[in-house]
Amino acid sequence: MKIRFAWLALAVFPVFIPSCVAGKRDMERVLKVMQQENPADYERVFKSFVRHASQGDADAMVALTSEVTVARMGGRAKLKEHYKQNMIPAFKAFPIMSPGGESHYLPPEKDSVGWTFVRTFKSRHGEERRFEIFVLKEQGQIRVAGAR
């Protein structure tokens, strides 16, 4: 029995040890990303954006929006109108953010880096809707880049 265990150990450990080392490298990479691009900094902007949307403050929402998004939407006035017609009614209809959710790191691309926050919101009647908010750092500023 001891001989079988020894052979089993010799067969399993060489396979198991490299995967442990790879797991350690993955964790080190995650910790490095978390230190460089702390999701809490991005989440504060996300929550502020949601709070302003729930309060109907389109001007504050525009102020938190990336310049790239402002330009893509045709300027501040058009973006403000988009927020008033689409985002504000959606967040007013679903004002209660459920606990938990997902956060996804967006690696550097075209001079920006950030996080996506996926959260479920509830209406006062118990209906649920998922929102996905993209928050990026552009030119050193953390801003909302989009929502769906």
Rank of each mutant, 00 (worst) to 15 (best):
M1D: 00
K2I: 12
R4I: 13
A6V: 08
W7F: 12
L8W: 13
A9N: 13
L10E: 02
L10G: 15
A11E: 02
F13L: 12
P14K: 02
V15Q: 09
F16C: 06
F16G: 03
F16H: 05
F16M: 15
I17R: 04
S19F: 13
V21D: 04
A22M: 10
A22I: 13
G23V: 08
G23E: 08
G23D: 11
K24T: 11
R29T: 11
V30W: 03
L31P: 00
L31D: 10
V33I: 10
Q35C: 02
Q35V: 01
E37S: 09
N38P: 03
P39E: 00
E43V: 02
E43Y: 07
R44K: 13
V45T: 14
F46G: 00
V50S: 02
R51H: 12
H52A: 15
A53N: 03
A53T: 09
A58Y: 02
A60G: 04
M61N: 12
V62Q: 09
S66V: 05
E67W: 09
M73E: 10
G74M: 08
G74N: 08
R76D: 10
A77W: 08
A77N: 15
E81R: 13
H82A: 14
H82F: 11
K84V: 06
Q85M: 15
Q85F: 07
N86L: 09
N86Q: 12
M87L: 15
I88H: 10
P89S: 06
A90Y: 09
K92F: 00
K92N: 03
P95T: 00
I96C: 05
M97E: 12
S98D: 14
G100L: 04
G101Y: 02
G101Q: 05
G101K: 05
S103Y: 00
L106V: 09
P107D: 09
E109H: 12
E109Y: 11
D111H: 09
G114W: 04
T116D: 13
V118N: 11
F121C: 12
S123L: 01
S123D: 00
R124F: 04
G126H: 11
E127V: 10
R129E: 07
R129L: 08
R129D: 05
R130Q: 15
F131T: 11
F134K: 13
V135P: 09
E138C: 01
Q139P: 04
Q141K: 14
G146F: 04
G146D: 10
G146A: 07
